[in-house]
Design a protein around this nucleic acid. Structure first.
Lengths: 153, 153
DNA sequence: GTTCTTTCTGCAATGAGTTGCATCAACACG
DNA sequence: CGTGTTGATGCAACTCATTGCAGAAAGAAC
């Protein structure tokens, strides 16, 4: 059913088809947002996406952007999580689910490997809790920022 | 320096003194919020706290509540994290730091044990990332909700 | 108790994100 | 190509949270 490739941007090839087969529509606004998403590599906040869309079409309204993001998440094209300040961060859906480690000082995001979380997933799984890796966010300090804090003290 | 006890509510015994020794002030508004916090056991959102404070004093303004929460977090009395919807959740500071597993369906929150996260902390620590356990949030489905979803399908 | 310093409060404005509702337009069908 | 159905859009209003600023008041000193 689902074709699995390694490329994260693979899914962007036939968004229209994916929407249609879900009974959803292909509109200029959605096309614009997808173009914007294609052009970003990494993680973007909702507000940033609204701004970027406004760059293409100044008429863009936030509600449409956020609703479209919801839809795109439903069809598995993107994922969102929440940064340390509680703001949404979107990223194009990876081929495999993964969590994120976010530096609370500089905001740097790194992806968690399976090895990082295996034990946690197993431990909670044993307790009946099914972990949703895509929503796993670990706060902390990255190597550089920790070094900087130590130097300060 | 810091007296360590097992009781999470221990710290609430001398908030006034703790504030004073940090050059901060003891005001009616802060007293009200602390009373409210004492009365909650578990996790509360910012908005809920504002509402609860309004119950005691209808004049309460959000900015004061949020700023006081910030102060209380600075002196280590409470901690906050972000729920699956990005809203803040506050809880009285535990004797030991711990993460949370949040059910994305029913919102149930359970605390993570050290055993749950040991491997993750070690793994990231090896890569130079210092995990802040109090900000660790794992999304997923609790036992009951997972059973319900399976039954639906 | 009066005075002074400095923090805190409350207001008003702002930003991020969400929602209800009337209107509009994809797109399937004839 | 015309038409009808249904999903999408845009607006306006709303919630949660944050911030700048002027005035209020806690607490220390006298």
């Amino acid at each position: 059913m689902t074709v699995r490739t390694r490329s994260a941007s693979q899914g962007f090839g036939d968004v229209r088809g994916r929407l249609r087969s879900a009974g959803l529509r292909w509109t200029p606004q959605r096309r614009a947002l997808i173009d914007v998403l294609k052009a970003t590599n990494g993680h973007v906040t909702g507000a940033e996406l609204v701004e970027l869309c406004r760059g293409r079409d100044p008429e863009t309204t936030p509600s449409t952007v956020y609703r479209t993001l919801e839809v795109l998440e439903e069809i598995g094209l993107i994922k969102h999580s929440h940064g340390r300040d509680g703001r949404q961060e979107f990223h194009i859906a990876p081929s495999s689910e993964h969590g994120h480690a976010i530096c609370e000082s500089c905001g740097e995001v790194r992806e968690l490997s399976d090895a990082d979380v295996d034990d946690l997933v197993a431990s909670l799984g044993g307790a009946g809790f099914a972990v949703d890796l895509s929503h796993l966010a670990v706060g902390g300090l990255c190597h550089d920022c920790r070094a900087a804090e130590v130097a300060e003290a």
